[in-house]
Design a binder for these strands. Structure first.
Lengths: 223, 223
DNA sequence: CAAATAAAATAGTAATACTATCATTTATAA
DNA sequence: TTATAAATGATAGTATTACTATTTTATTTG
């Protein structure tokens, strides 16, 4: 079975829908690859224009600025994650199994599902780990939040929180635990790779280590 | 008792020691206030020069760029936190009490200790919450890490890990839990204030809420 | 007081983050 | 099929950012 998923992304995130044209799609596709390659701070629309073989002005017709492009990419990712959670939990009853699957999705790179995606999923994953906090750690947070641009993140968080409550109805912080699991899956993975003394990484790979840590944390806490 | 604390900050972080002159001290002091006020992205040495009533060129004699200034500020903060942990744990034997004190230090704003500090501790606290991840989430991480600029963070993390192990010697992830507690104290506080649906904030203040969440997490997990 | 050092003043450059205009190509609908 | 609108390209321009360099003026310190 081979299929494509696409999501409607919040209209406030773009000036012209990048999904509506070949150029728009290239901007997002190469945007992901370039942000991954050089990091968000060094990323500029000028550099992206060269990759895409278009002009800076053309990119500005799609996105107001690079922060909006990052938000667009992350919105896409969060929507995709929520879809994946839904999809993989179908027909599963046991809450423990559900939680295990979720932790796997959070810490695993999505490589295996790459067939169904139009973007470089490895680059996308790295961006989520290294750059996603830059989407909300900005002074303009309350303004941009009014545009509902964090709705997919909140939805994903709420969905995971539901499963947490299913598993242990008396646990008092399902949403906070959910966002902590998401954030920690990024930070521990990043630390394991770049500042390993902030972790207990042994001989495992960073990804595997992160999963082990999250599993221990979740199931000991909710026991 | 009234006293001042100061720490030797890694020499690689500056070109000229800001602690060695009145101008240098003003640069750091107003740097903290300006970063807090307008956010790291909007912060420039030009704007800081206006606040300090000096020139851009003069600031560049102290710090290579704004990222180094942020690292300097955070190094100072991490050293100060480690000092505070040491100081407040003096003569305390019970590991549980120790952990409780640490969680208080992590989630509390340091207002009460402001007397002994040369900087605006409220601004410093907000910077740590909103900007500290920008110090390490950069492409240059492995290069800057070679300059040992994260040593104070690692030391603080190791110190807290020691207490975790004291409290529960069989727990397998003391360092990762330690860095997770530090990071989560920032992210949950930030979310509670700006994206509360990612948390279980009720009627408590964000700070109190963060403490309750961390206490529950820590003691249930290490039980 | 002289010598050294720090700071101020000034200037300049390349890159960034845009905005604007107009010509050309491409899609679309009458 | 043509006209017309919409998208893109080409080009230019501005203010700000992120620096570096040089020369002059204060301030320390020996």
């Amino acid at each position: 079975m081979d299929f494509q998923v696409s999501f409607t992304v919040n209209e406030k995130l773009f000036l012209r829908n990048p999904d509506s044209s070949a150029l728009g799609k290239k901007i997002v596709k190469y945007g992901i690859e370039l942000i991954h390659e050089i990091g968000f701070e060094h990323f500029t629309f000028k550099k992206l224009a060269i990759q895409v073989e278009t002009t800076e002005a053309s990119i500005y017709r799609y996105f107001e600025n690079k922060h909006r492009l990052l938000l667009y990419i992350l919105n896409w990712y969060w929507s995709y994650m929520e879809f994946l959670v839904d999809y993989t939990l179908k027909n599963i009853q046991d809450p423990k199994t559900k939680l295990e699957i979720i932790l796997n999705l959070l810490s695993k790179d999505l490589g295996e599902n790459s067939g169904i995606l139009q973007y470089n999923i490895n680059a996308l994953n790295q961006i989520v780990i290294s750059e996603s906090s830059k989407a909300y750690l900005v002074k303009e947070i309350s303004d941009i939040n009014k545009d509902q641009v964090f709705k997919p993140y909140k939805d994903l968080c709420a969905k995971i929180a539901t499963v947490i409550t299913e598993y242990n109805p008396s646990y008092k912080f399902p949403r906070s635990l959910s966002s902590t699991l998401i954030e920690t899956s990024h930070s521990q993975h990043y630390f394991a790779e770049n500042l390993p003394r902030l972790t207990d990484l042994g001989t495992e790979k960073p990804q595997k280590f992160t999963l082990l840590f999250l599993q221990n944390l979740t199931f000991e806490l909710l026991k």
